[in-house]
Simulated scan of single mutants.
Amino acid sequence: MADETENEEIDDEAVAAEWAAMAGAEDDAPDDDAVAAEWEAMAAGDAEDDDGDGYSGSAPGRVLDQDEIDSLLGFDGEDDGGDSHGIQALINSALVSYERLPMLDIIFDRMVRMMSTSLRNFTSDNIEVSLDNITSVRFGDYLNSIPLPAMLAVFRAEEWDNYGLMTVDSSLIYSIVDVLLGGRRGTAAMRIEGRPYTTIEQTLVERMIAVILKDMSAAFEPLSPTNFTFDRLETNPRFATIARPPNAAVLIKLRIDMEDRGGRLELLYPYATLEPVRELLLQRFMGEKFGRDSIWETHLATELWSADLQLRAVLDEQVMSLRDVMNLQVGQTIQLNVTPQDSLEMRCGEVTLLNARMGRSGQKLAVQVNNVNRLKRAGRKE
C-alpha cells in the first residue's frame, strides 16, 4: 500500500510539471492582438502593391466585384457572337451551331406545308404541323434524353448512303391510332401505361412514317434529289444507334396537332449524313427558288447571244520538232496537206464549232460554211 501511494504521488508530480510546461509555452505564444496586427500589416501591404507583377494577396476582406465574377464565369451579358470564355466556354464546348447550314430552315418550312396536306389526306382530319426549332446536339445526349415509351424509326438516305432517325412520342402514337381507328373527335386519346406497343399500333405508325418520308424526299428534291426509305422501327434507343455518341447531329422538332390531341415528332440527322450536300446547305437566300434566279438566268442568256466571239480558220496542222522550227529561214516554204477543195475547221479556242471552205470575196479571203451540225450540237450541250 505504501508503494502504491508513492507511485501516485510521483505521477501527480509529473502531471503537474507537464501542465506547468504547457502554461509556460502559452505565455511565450503571441497573443491575439499581435496576430491581428500582423494580418492588418499584410492587408495594407497588398493594398499598396502596385508594381504590376500580377500577384494577388490572400488578405481577409478581399471580395470580387460583379464584373470580375461575370468574367470568371463567362457570363458577361454581351452576346456579340465572339468566342466565349471562362466556365461558359466549357459548357458550350459540346455544342455545335447549326447556323452553318441555313438552308435547312427553308427545306423544313417547305416540308411542314407539305406534311399538313398529306397528313390531312392520310387521317381525314384537320391537322396542323408546326416547326418548333432546329438545334444541334450530340447523338449520345439525344438518345439519353428521349422520353420513353416512344417509337424510333431508322430511315436511310439512299443517295447519301447514310441514315437518319425519326422519333414519335407516345402522345402522337395514341392520337394517330385513335384517329385512324375511328376515335371520337374532341376527346384526347387515352394513354395506356405499362404495356408495349401492339402490332396494330406499330403498323399504323409505319404508315404515317412512310407518308412523312415521302414528303421529306419531296422537300429535298429542289436542292438534291434524295430518296428516304424506311429501314426499321425500334422502341429501345440502344437499338437505334446510327452514329457514335459524341458525333454532332442536327435535331428538328415538329409539333402535330389534331384538334384536342396530337404530339411531337423529332428528326435527327447526323452531320455525316448531310455531308454530301453540305455545300448546297451553306447557301443563304430567301424564298423557295433554292439558289435559282430566273431574272438573272434570262439576262445571262441574252448577253451570251450578243457576246463577241473570235474564230480561227485552221487550214492544216503539222507536228515538227523543235530543231526544225529553229532552223527555219526566211523564204522557206512549208507544204500544207490541203487543196482548195478541202474543208477547213473554224475553231474558237480549242473547240471546233463548224466546217467551212476557203474562197475569195472581192479582194479579201473568205470562208463558206458548209456544215453547222457541230455548232448546233455545241449549243445543245451548253
Rank of each mutant, 00 (worst) to 15 (best):
P246K: 08
T226L: 06
G45S: 08
S118Q: 14
M114P: 04
N373C: 03
D257P: 00
G362H: 02
D32R: 15
S130P: 05
T117A: 15
R191I: 15
V205Y: 03
D32E: 08
E317R: 13
E201S: 06
Y271R: 12
V314D: 14
R278K: 10
F75N: 06
E9A: 11
E159H: 01
G379P: 05
H299T: 07
K214F: 05
V15R: 09
A47Q: 09
A248N: 10
L148D: 09
G291F: 06
L213M: 02
L354Q: 02
Q368L: 09
V351A: 11
M208W: 01
I192H: 12
L180G: 02
D31F: 12
D28A: 10
A23F: 04
T117D: 13
G263Y: 06
F230S: 04
T352L: 11
P102T: 09
A313V: 15
N133C: 11
T229H: 05
Q283L: 11
L165T: 01
R120Y: 06
E275C: 03
V137F: 12
D324L: 02
F75E: 08
A47G: 01
F122L: 13
R374P: 03
R120P: 00
S136H: 09
A307E: 08
L311Q: 03
E99S: 11
P60D: 04
M258R: 05
S93R: 14
R238Y: 06
V277L: 08
G86Q: 05
P237Y: 04
R138Y: 00
V154W: 00
R113C: 05
R244W: 01
Y197K: 13
A356S: 11
G52Y: 01
D231H: 10
I176S: 02
N355K: 13
D65N: 14
L101E: 08
G45Q: 12
G77S: 07
M166R: 01
L354R: 07
M111W: 12
M151W: 14
A14G: 07
D178V: 02
T199M: 10
R292M: 04
I10T: 07
E99N: 06
L268T: 10
I209Q: 00
D51R: 15
E128P: 04
D260M: 06
G194A: 11
L223F: 07
Y174E: 13
A20C: 02
I127H: 11
N236I: 02
A41L: 01
S171M: 10
K253C: 03
L101C: 04
E193D: 14
